[in-house]
């Protein structure tokens, strides 16, 4: 089992409930990590592991909402599903606004639970793939020399080679070579692709 596997983090102070929900999810093939104490969960939380948090709303020390806030505060985009015995509307609205996947009431039906977990899994996958492509762009950008990065910014801004050469105090031919290398290093074939990549990486063109 690797840490890349989707994991459901269960937090409920009631051991009986914790065990039963865990068993249900395991039977469905989910990897689970149960915690009876929210603080213990926070302490050992690893954001890199894909998965979601299934939180009991009413717990000693730290209730579900507070735990959700604590998770976002530390920069995690962990998907959260709430489980509660007495869900009232104001609480559920707060939970949903804070980005919860769902607000389930106990006793929870397996279909509802699984749907929510699947939704969480989907969202988590989305977020994770986005993050992965960005990472590859950033890696590729890191391969460019400073001169190449400079040239790329001018290209993205829509300048012609001649203009860029004039700006940088060189000849058009040199610019052409740099441009070819950038396109090569970043794996793009057209200027349009380059511009898209630069956008995703959050790089703005010079002078635009």
């Amino acid at each position: 089992m690797t840490n890349d596997e989707f994991t459901v983090f269960l937090v409920d102070d009631d051991e009986g409930v914790l065990k039963a929900i865990g068993r249900l999810l395991q039977a469905r093939g989910y990897r689970i990590q149960p915690f009876t104490s929210p603080t213990a969960f926070l302490a050992s939380h690893d954001v890199s592991i894909p998965g979601c948090a299934l939180l009991d709303l009413s717990m000693p020390d730290l209730d579900g909402l507070a735990l959700q806030q604590a998770l976002s505060a530390c920069g995690s985009e962990r998907q959260v599903i709430f489980l509660t015995a007495k869900g009232d509307i104001p609480t559920s609205v707060r939970a949903m606004r804070a980005g919860a996947i769902d607000f389930l009431t106990k006793p929870v039906n397996d279909t509802d639970l699984l749907r929510a977990v699947q939704e969480a899994e989907r969202k988590d996958g989305e977020i994770r793939s986005k993050a992965a492509s960005l990472n590859s762009i950033i890696t590729k950008l890191a391969l460019l020399t400073p001169r190449e990065q400079e040239v790329m910014k001018h290209v993205v801004a829509g300048r012609l080679n001649k203009q860029i050469a004039g700006e940088l105090g060189t000849v058009e031919k040199t610019i052409k070579v740099h441009r070819g290398r950038v396109m090569n290093k970043l794996g793009v074939r057209s200027v349009a692709d380059l511009v898209r990549l630069a956008e995703r990486a959050g790089i703005a063109g010079v002078g635009s």
């Binding site: 009986g16 469905r28 007495k86 039906n109």
Partner: peptide, 25 residues
Amino acid sequence: SGAIAHEVNQPLTAILSNAQAALYL
């Protein structure tokens, strides 16, 4: 009453989940 209902709800939750898990298994 709310708190007490919760106290009954907890075991019910566990029972339901256990039962559904068992059925699936």
